[in-house]
């Protein structure tokens, strides 16, 4: 079994971090994992994307043109990558700033207004964690417990941010599952 998740958005939206947290969670759960960044000549404010491959055996090709799932944090990313997602995958959409859908009937589209949710929690910067939580709750690429553990691990050196991010995780999960 192998699943691939592509995260894409503007530089500054925390796209690379989302991928790293997911990769950490999958590694903690005992999976083989690779995190592959885009490192082309992009500049601040340009597009940023990364791919996480999670597998129960050593990962072969790190080059993934058709990921199983997509987390689109802005409109250009959705428009660029929506068509590449494998049928049946989850397409997560940052509904706060993306007014359109994936335009596909064969994927599981999940729209969450992550920025409003994060603002209500007190810090819009937590929007990426809301998104990651909603995506994981829907796709179940790792368990929610592993995700929570990895978020705490990632913020271990900035411990005062942990309560906010735990709240963000919970809010994201609720947005995706309705309870």
């Amino acid at each position: 079994m192998q699943s691939e998740v592509q995260f894409a958005g503007f530089g500054g939206q925390g796209v690379m971090l989302m991928g790293q947290i997911l990769a950490q969670a999958a590694m903690n759960a005992g999976f083989e994992v690779v995190w592959i960044p885009s490192y082309g000549p992009e500049m601040r404010g340009g597009t940023a994307y990364c791919t996480v491959v999670i597998s129960d055996r050593p990962v072969g090709s790190p080059i993934i043109r058709n990921p199983q799932h997509l987390v689109a944090m802005n409109r250009p990313s959705l428009e660029k990558f929506a068509s590449t997602v494998k049928p049946g995958g989850v397409v997560f959409i940052n509904a706060s700033i993306i007014p359109v859908g994936a335009g596909r009937s064969d994927v599981d589209e999940l729209r969450v207004p992550i920025m409003e949710i994060a603002k209500d929690l007190g810090n819009v910067k937590a929007a990426n964690i809301v998104a990651l939580a909603a995506f994981v709750a829907r796709s179940r690429v790792v368990s929610f417990e592993e995700l929570t553990g990895a978020v705490k691990q990632k913020f271990a050196e900035k411990a005062k941010l942990i309560p906010l991010n735990v709240k963000a995780l919970e809010a994201g999960r609720k947005a995706a599952t309705g309870n």
Partner: peptide, 10 residues
């Protein structure tokens, strides 16, 4: 190559 340098693995 660039990928070996840039990618993260356990």
């Amino acid at each position: 190559d660039g990928l070996i340098g840039q990618m993260m693995e356990p």
